[in-house]
C-alpha cells in the first residue's frame, strides 16, 4: 500500500473499498471477539463457522470484531445475508451455531437468540 497523499485520495480509497465490498457480496459472519466474547468461548464459535461453512460448501466470509457490549449474552455474532439487514444473535453455543447455519444462513429462517439493535446510531 502506498501512503495516502491527500484527503481526496482517502475519499477515493474509501469509495474503492465500499465498491469492492458491495461487488462480491456473500454471507458475512462477524464473530464478536473482544475480551468478554473470548472469555465466553467466541474463539470456538469462530473456528466452528470457518470450518463448518467450508465443509458445507457455503460461500461466506467470517471475520472477528470487538464486542458490542452485550456481555450478558456472549458469545454474540452478526450474520448478514446478501441484500438483507444484518442480524445479531446472542448466547451462541455450537448447537445454536449449527442452527444458524442450517436455518438462517441457508434458508433465512431466524432462530432464537436474536438481539435487536436496541440503540440509535449517529446516522439516524
Amino acid at each position: 500500500m502506498n501512503a495516502v497523499k491527500s484527503p481526496e485520495e482517502l475519499k477515493s480509497i474509501k469509495a474503492g473499498i465500499l465498491k469492492r465490498m458491495n461487488e462480491k457480496e456473500t454471507v458475512r459472519v462477524k464473530v464478536h471477539m473482544g475480551t468478554s466474547g473470548l472469555a465466553s468461548g467466541a474463539r470456538e464459535i469462530y473456528d466452528f463457522f470457518r470450518l463448518e461453512l467450508e465443509k458445507r460448501n457455503i460461500q461466506a466470509s467470517v471475520t472477528s470484531t470487538g464486542d458490542m457490549g452485550y456481555s450478558f449474552a456472549e458469545p454474540t455474532l452478526e450474520v448478514k445475508r446478501p441484500g438483507e439487514d444484518p442480524v445479531v444473535f446472542g448466547n451462541v453455543d455450537k448447537l445454536r451455531a449449527d442452527e444458524i447455519i442450517e436455518k438462517y444462513i441457508k434458508n433465512g429462517e431466524l432462530v432464537d437468540g436474536v438481539l435487536p439493535a436496541n440503540y440509535r446510531t449517529i446516522n439516524q
Binding site: 449474552a73 446472542g90 429462517e109 431466524l110 432462530v111 432464537d112 437468540g113 438481539l115 435487536p116 436496541n118
Partner: peptide
C-alpha cells in the same frame, strides 16, 4: 416461525 429475541430498547 416464532422466535425469542432480545430487547428492542
Amino acid at each position: 416461525h416464532v422466535v425469542h429475541s432480545g430487547c428492542f430498547g
